[in-house]
């Protein structure tokens, strides 16, 4: 079973990587717009596509994830969802994935730092990935003027003056992204050295390495601009290679470390939709068999019991009792069977 799942994951991941190669060739007009100086980055994104697909398929093949994946997809694309609550999916995607409101409930400082890091990374990805694939090109519209054209897949999308504020922002988008990321990473690194809750059980490879990788990318990226403006290109080659190595390492590492939560987080939307659909129908929640306290929605509990049976956890009927009743019943049984002196 494990071997079959792995072989299937490898095949699908290879197919996705090939599709990306095809999209790069087509999107860069037969590689005419492709910048060969960016080849290491392009290769890293192809590895990334392979790694993320492989890891994702391995992840959802586990019983609990597989059941939730099916239920989430089924709910998201069900006719009932589109008819009854058509805005629920985009709304939940925006609150969970974009604005990450749940992080605010954990800590306001962490929420702000994570938002800075998130939008910084998103901006950087939106600029660099299409550039390395040859999908975006910037060309001068005339030989002597400040006019520039941005083309996507060879089609002109917009024209702007390179001396305007918009032009400045276009050419310094990555610098802005780096500033956002450095702010967020700085806070999280400080927290990882000071906060006892964060330092408990932390691991270098899992908790520090991703932060150090983002910091290296951002700092070397900013230094490239610094070198260009202030040092007349001094040390540019060294910085460019360091920047490239750190980006390639991060992209290849992404599917296997802490960064994988980026790929996993949409499961929160699927789970919330799955529970929301039952609630929006006005169905009663499943109540604890002993005390009547609402536990969760009926489909959720059936899904959990199915997961427990898949895993050979033969006490799935116990899920129909609330946590407090489980403890009280265990206490009563201990009192009756084990140690009467407990009274």
């Amino acid at each position: 079973m494990g071997r079959r799942v792995r072989s299937r994951a490898v095949l699908v991941a290879a197919a996705v990587s090939l599709l990306l190669v095809l999209a790069i060739v087509l999107g860069s007009r037969g590689l005419r717009d492709f910048d060969s100086a960016l080849i290491p980055y392009t290769v890293a994104t192809i590895f990334l596509a392979f790694g993320v697909t492989y890891r994702y398929l391995m992840w959802i093949s586990a019983p609990a994830a597989w059941r939730l994946f099916r239920q989430g997809l089924r709910t998201a694309f069900s006719r009932e969802n589109f008819r009854r609550a058509p805005t629920s999916l985009p709304r939940m995607a925006a609150t969970y994935l974009g604005f990450q409101r749940f992080l605010g409930a954990r800590s306001h400082a962490r929420w702000i730092a994570h938002q800075a890091m998130f939008w910084g990374c998103l901006l950087a990805v939106a600029i660099t990935f299409p550039l390395t694939w040859g999908w975006f090109t910037f060309t001068a519209s005339s030989a002597d003027g400040p006019g520039y054209e941005m083309r996507v897949w060879g089609f002109k999308v917009l024209g702007f003056s390179s001396s305007s504020f918009f032009g400045w922002a276009m050419y310094h988008g990555l610098d802005l992204a780096a500033v956002l990321v450095i702010g967020g990473v700085g806070y999280f690194l400080w927290r990882r050295t000071r906060d006892r809750a964060a330092t408990t059980g932390q691991r270098f490879g899992y908790d520090f390495l991703p932060l150090l990788a983002l910091l290296t990318i951002s700092v070397t990226g900013l230094l490239l601009t610094f070198s260009e403006i202030c040092l007349h290109g001094g040390g540019y080659e060294f910085l460019a290679v360091t920047h490239m190595v750190s980006v390639v390492f991060t992209l290849v590492y992404l599917p296997f470390g802490k960064f994988f939560h980026i790929v996993q987080r949409p499961a929160a939307v699927g789970m919330a939709l799955f529970k929301f659909q039952s609630r929006s129908r006005g169905e009663e929640l499943f109540a604890c068999r002993r005390c009547g306290t609402p536990i969760d929605t009926v489909p959720y509990l059936e899904n959990l019991r199915g997961t427990m049976r898949d895993l050979d956890l033969g006490f799935d009927e116990w899920a129909e009792y609330c946590p407090r009743c489980k403890r009280v019943l265990r206490g009563s049984a201990y009192l009756q069977h084990v140690k009467r002196g407990f009274r």
Partner: peptide, 28 residues
């Protein structure tokens, strides 16, 4: 792991000893 937890409550309801708690707002 706060990075990964999606606040689904599976652990809360599967634990035979009734141990885990859930913070639904924090999805944790």
């Amino acid at each position: 792991d706060p990075t990964r937890c999606i606040g689904c409550s599976n652990c809360v309801n599967a634990c035979p000893f009734g141990v885990p708690k859930i913070d639904l707002a924090a999805k944790l």
